[in-house]
Design a binder for these strands. Structure first.
Lengths: 396, 396
DNA sequence: CGACTTTCCCCACTCACAGGACAAAGACTC
DNA sequence: GAGTCTTTGTCCTGTGAGTGGGGAAAGTCG
């Protein structure tokens, strides 16, 4: 099958495509209510989109009290690929044009194995999704990497946790392999876009999305747009100082938030607690698995282990303290907490909330929800699909 | 004289007006090079603007190798009023449509005397400017207040240092008195707009503007637009915790940046230093004036007083630490330092720079200038004029 | 079965815009 | 100083896009 070649010719068509993406199949009449166009103009633009094959007729809508209208929808054969490269695992998903996930694969993999190995894996996962009949090809792909990205070129820059990726032409290479347009972004930004599209941040224009996984990052959405900063490193809050003269961090400083709380730090703290004989629960899990992860701490905490709870609480306090500063500075309408450690759940959330509500001014926190992400591991891939669809559904 | 009544009818006219505002008088031909319009369309729009009186013919331009072109410029009789209400003083200025300051008055006044008294003063200063022949009336006014503002309505909300202003309809009231459109914003945002229009931040799309005066605030510009946050309190960094378990702050917390460094805190520290016999220079000034201000510290530091220098350095470190966090988070292309304490000059700047460059990651600081504001006390009033002109030079 | 609604197609009329032709005004060359 | 070239500004016309009305098609409701 031939893949999507056309792009909307003007802003009106782009608007229509986005409405259909976000609202699903719809009738011409209802679309007419949402865009500011005359009936005839609307008909012309819809006809042109039908000609390009981007949208197709989709039967009759229910009557609204008169003649039933002909529904239209985005071409059902359109397929986007969403890729979320984490520090320790890869998520790949196929979506249709409405960004609904049709198939989703997850595979553990260390990003430090380098771009070539990771790409091989991504492509094999994409091939597997294709082979299972979910797609005959891809019309576009979005990909998130765990580090700063020079957005216009789609190239990672100076990524601390992924040496070997610096300057690697991710966009170019993937586009070549997949034969479709590709956009690259920071994984945290994609998580934010995902939650904005289909999660808790629907219809919120200004919010922060804090992702606590192997590291800590923050997606910034201002006026409905992701803020990436001049060098693409905006949201890199893992190296904000949380503890004066605190622990040494890989970045060379001391007391970075990431050195005190993150998946990696939490695991290290847990081992230390076992060595000091402070937790039998954790000791048992260490003995069983030979190693401890953030997930073990979550399980121990769920079982009521006091030490595990303390670790989570303290981490939440540190994180909350930093977030409090960001809230004062940015004055968001919502804070979303996501990433691998969401398994720590409400203990973590409560600690963060306490700290933010105490340290920021009432005007900023008065009506500020602080919530867990709704989409979990799919936030990234949905965000990735959203990224490329935003690109493709804009005038060329 | 009749005041400006017309507004641009479309985006093209708005663009032309802004070009003339920012670039001064210009020929039709050169304007044509900067907007994407056919010659005929440009001529039509220019003619319409001439009809409205917003622009006027302005003689002939120098030849570019052929027929000389007829210059046009914004109507020379247009006048904007820029008002900057600080914690302890009021600035009022008249500008022409190109936002050049024609007259500028400054008057000490404590904002806590309340909106009525302050307004009286503002109006009397405006009247004085009118009386000196600089303006026959105002076509628009911008006003900055030292606290959060609900921007769309132009109403201060929950301003900590200006009780009595909460909910006062500043925009409405001033508009009534002056008989022209008025826009209200936070003073720090206006300073940022001022520096963006005519200062160091020309042609920078993403930057932070830190104002250290009686309090501390930060203007945030992202993509050329001021970010105000959902409740208008974005940039309120004075109450970010800079010192864990530090000094008590008026807001009820401990260790807020503002409690450790600001005009007020610096004065208090200076008095304390004198009491402890740590500085003869400052003691002399205290004896002479009966009180100490930030300016005294500046003078003492300039004279080489070690204690004064230490105070400045320590404050700079605290501030730099907070700014480092903001830089990591926001990844700006420029940081501007302004406000009353700019008199502390390069000692302060050096301390801030050291801290930021040390604590933020190289990717964010690699090409990050940290500079003093260029406009000093005029930044606020220019920003205010810019605010209202942006409003008036947009389609209604 | 008829009246009313809603949707959609068709068509003619309007209007804005692009772009070429031309006139005006000055620079440059010889 | 005359002729040629450049640049600017105006005029005019053809084109094409968009608006809005009319009416047919396809429903619902009483």
């Amino acid at each position: 099958m031939r893949r999507m070649t056309a792009r909307p010719a003007n802003a009106h068509q782009a608007k229509l495509l986005k409405l259909l993406r976000d609202g699903g199949p719809n009738s011409r009449a209802q679309l007419g209510d949402e865009v500011d166009l005359s009936r005839s103009k609307l008909a012309v633009e819809v006809d042109r989109l039908l000609e390009t094959g981007l949208i197709v007729a989709d039967g009759l809508a229910a009557s609204r009290g008169g003649r039933r209208s002909h529904n239209i929808r985005l071409a059902p054969a359109l397929r986007f690929l969403g890729v979320d490269i984490g520090a320790t695992s890869i998520d790949v998903a196929v979506t249709n044009a409405e960004l609904e996930i049709l198939g989703h694969l997850n595979q553990p993999m260390d990003v430090r194995e380098g771009p070539v190995a990771v790409f091989e894996q991504v492509l094999s996962m994409a091939a597997k999704l294709k082979a299972s009949g979910l797609a005959e090809g891809f019309d576009g792909a979005g990909i998130g990497v765990p580090g700063p990205v020079r957005f216009p070129e789609g190239v990672p820059v100076a990524p601390p946790i992924m040496p070997g990726w610096d300057g690697f032409p991710v966009r170019e290479a993937l586009s070549q392999e997949l034969g479709c347009p590709v956009m690259v972004d920071n994984d945290v930004n994609l998580m934010a876009m995902g939650e904005m599209h289909a999660g808790v941040a629907r219809s919120v224009g200004d919010f922060l999305c804090v992702k606590i996984g192997t590291g800590i990052g923050c997606g910034i959405v201002a006026g409905g747009e992701v803020h990436r900063g001049v060098t693409g490193s905006a949201g890199d809050i893992g190296h904000i100082q949380a503890v004066p003269d605190g622990r040494p961090c890989a970045c060379g400083n001391r007391g970075c938030l990431e050195a005190h709380f993150s998946g990696a730090a939490l695991a290290r703290d847990a081992v230390e607690a076992v060595e000091q004989g402070r937790s039998e629960e954790l000791a048992a899990r260490l003995a069983a698995n030979g190693t401890l992860t953030a997930a073990d701490v979550a399980v121990a905490a769920a079982a009521g282990d006091a030490t595990a709870l303390d670790l989570i609480r303290e981490g939440g306090n540190r994180t909350g303290q930093v977030i409090a500063g960001l809230v004062s500075f940015f004055n968001p309408g919502l804070v979303v907490i996501g990433g691998g450690v969401t398994g720590l759940g409400h203990t973590l959330l409560a600690a963060i909330r306490t700290q933010v509500y105490r340290q920021s001014l009432p005007l900023a926190t008065g009506n500020l929800p602080i919530v867990l992400g709704e989409l979990g591991p799919t936030a990234g891939v949905i965000g990735a699909a959203r990224l490329i669809s935003d690109h493709l559904f804009s005038p060329a």
